[in-house]
Nucleic acid binder design. Structure first.
Lengths: 116, 116
DNA sequence: CCCGTACTACGATGTCTATCGTACGAGCCG
DNA sequence: CGGCTCGTACGATAGACATCGTAGTACGGG
């Protein structure tokens, strides 16, 4: 065949210059998503969705990962049955210098205050 | 009388340690509110609500200022008929070091990219 | 070839939110 | 006092969103 079957195995990402600050802030204004990003930053590597122990169902987890991807915060690639998630640190640092680190630090501080 | 009349002339603000990162990010994920905060930061002083030329009605403006106040981003004080708005820079810097500056820089960059 | 695992798609739902218009309260000024 | 300006309150509305359950698709292993 000349036309390949429309495999949804590749996921749409915004290009670097399409990433909007409002969208990033909106994405990170949800505690579940901020937690995902924090864990991803600590791991410093791509993680599969199932590596996260989140207090929501799998449907909702899928939703949150999609919001993060569509806002340009993370990158998602299929790898067999798993979907690997990686932080788009280079793009974010280029667009918004210092923002990601400030956010991660802020999230750690907030978590410490909450836990104590 | 012993009980003063319930004057709504004083506005409730969250204490410093009640400010939540999620709320701040949510507040700033709206372009109108981010614009307010940017102008406030440039002014480096308290401004009355009417000093802003926003693309929404007065009702909506009141709403946005309230969201910013309740999230702890700004401080509001009545001064005659005017309501003065000031950035809570010290509180934010203490809670989330570097975050406010990174956000303001990011907003400037985004605006520059949009304008060009 | 069949099954299990990983993730998605779709539909439903209740809540939140941005927006508006209109009507009102509070302080200043002539 | 009378009016003006600044800002609020309230109600309405349309859209977004977080959450879930169920049913389905893709891939790898026995």
């Amino acid at each position: 065949m000349t036309t390949a079957p429309p495999s949804p195995r590749v996921l749409p990402h915004p290009a670097r210059d399409e990433i909007r600050l409002e969208s990033v802030l909106h994405a990170l204004s949800d505690p579940v998503r901020m937690r995902i990003v924090s864990e991803l930053a600590e791991a410093e590597a791509a993680l599969s969705c199932s590596r996260f122990d989140l207090p929501v169902t799998k449907s909702t987890t899928t939703h949150h990962f999609r919001v993060l991807r569509e806002s340009g915060v993370i990158q998602q690639v299929y790898e067999g049955t798993a979907k690997m998630n990686g932080l788009r640190r280079e793009d974010l640092d280029a667009l918004f210098p210092g923002l990601l680190d400030a956010l991660l630090t802020a999230a750690r501080g907030q978590a410490a205050r909450d836990g104590a």
